[in-house]
């Protein structure tokens, strides 16, 4: 029974009026506040990175669709634009122009099209691109720029770096008044977008809640000197946790389908994030954690498959 492998929840299935295309554009819309905040904080260079990244993604998608003799109209479904935007949000604002170009190509070709295009990709394409860049050119990917009104124009250590500047107040971190990636710094803007997505029921709260919750609890227990003394608010407000938990871990294609599965997925992401942040050799663990859990999604789906009503367990 092949259909049994695809249908995870029992019927009845209600067809949603939302199409994939509509959802993509609504997600892009919800990401806009963070982008505007990024431009406001770091200046027009952020806009440049975003545009280059989006254009690179769209062009590689078009070329690949053409090569595989697929309908080129598929570039209009918004998924390439969304990938490009998310990729740009993961980059520091003052990055050499060729890095978003390479990132876009890698995201689309290696992250999505090689698996068969939208809906077939195992891993979140934007994160594939980001991790590729992070490993390949770590210096560029971790040279942060301060907000444009800061007196100190020289790049500073990211707050998450282990010995990083702890001099930021929580308010500064919440508003994005510090160096960081374009779309990751302004938590306020990200939360506005995330609330929009949750209230329009495009994403459910299960993944972000379990993801962020796990990170905060574990950071509180293990993040400080001795147990139960970690600065968990700091862990929440820095790095890509909010962006990752609300916008990247919840990607429809690469997350589990059932509620139980989503919670397991979120907890897994959280555990791995804290593990990498505290013990790993890279400062940020969110993207690696989500990618890792992406790989386990088929397994999670298999074991959290809802029992069909009226059918016995065995």
């Amino acid at each position: 029974m092949p259909s049994n492998n695809l249908t995870v929840t029992p019927s009845p299935h209600i067809k949603s009026p939302l199409s994939a295309k509509k959802i993509m554009y609504l997600v892009i819309l919800s990401l806009l506040p963070a982008g505007i905040a990024g431009i406001y904080i770091f200046g027009l260079c952020s806009l440049k990175v975003m545009l280059i990244s989006i254009i690179s993604c769209v062009i590689s998608e078009a070329v690949f669709l053409k090569l595989r003799n697929r309908d080129p109209k598929a570039i209009l479904d918004g998924s390439a634009i969304l990938t490009g935007l998310l990729l740009a949000y993961n980059m520091p604002p003052e990055i050499p122009f060729w890095i978003p170009i390479v990132g876009g190509v890698v995201s689309i070709v290696l992250g999505k099209q090689i698996f068969g295009g939208l809906g077939h990709n195992i891993f979140n394409p934007a994160l594939v691109g980001r991790v590729f860049l992070q490993i390949s050119w770590p210096v560029y990917m971790t040279t942060w720029k301060n907000p444009k009104w800061a007196i100190d124009a020289v790049s500073s250590a990211t707050p998450l770096a282990k010995e990083g500047a702890r001099g930021f107040s929580y308010l500064d971190l919440f508003l994005g008044n510090h160096g960081g990636s374009i779309g990751e710094v302004c938590i306020l803007a990200l939360i506005i977008g995330a609330l929009f997505l949750i209230f329009t029921k495009i994403i459910s709260f299960h993944i972000p809640a379990s993801f962020i919750g796990t990170v905060m609890v574990l950071a509180w227990i293990f993040g400080g000197e001795g147990f139960f003394r970690g600065d968990f608010i700091f862990h929440l407000l820095t790095g890509g946790l909010v962006l990752g938990a609300f916008f990247m871990a919840t990607d429809y294609v690469t997350c589990p389908l059932t509620r139980k599965g989503k919670i397991i997925f979120g907890i897994g992401c959280g555990v791995l994030t804290v593990l990498i942040r505290l013990r790993g050799s890279y400062p940020e663990g969110v993207s690696y954690a989500i990618l890792f859990m992406n790989a386990v999604v088929p397994l999670i789906d298999r074991y959290t498959k809802t029992r069909v009503y009226g059918v016995s367990k065995k």
Partner: peptide, 8 residues
């Protein structure tokens, strides 16, 4: 040493 490749 076993620092981050490309950085440390």
């Amino acid at each position: 040493q076993n620092e981050t490749p490309g950085l440390g």
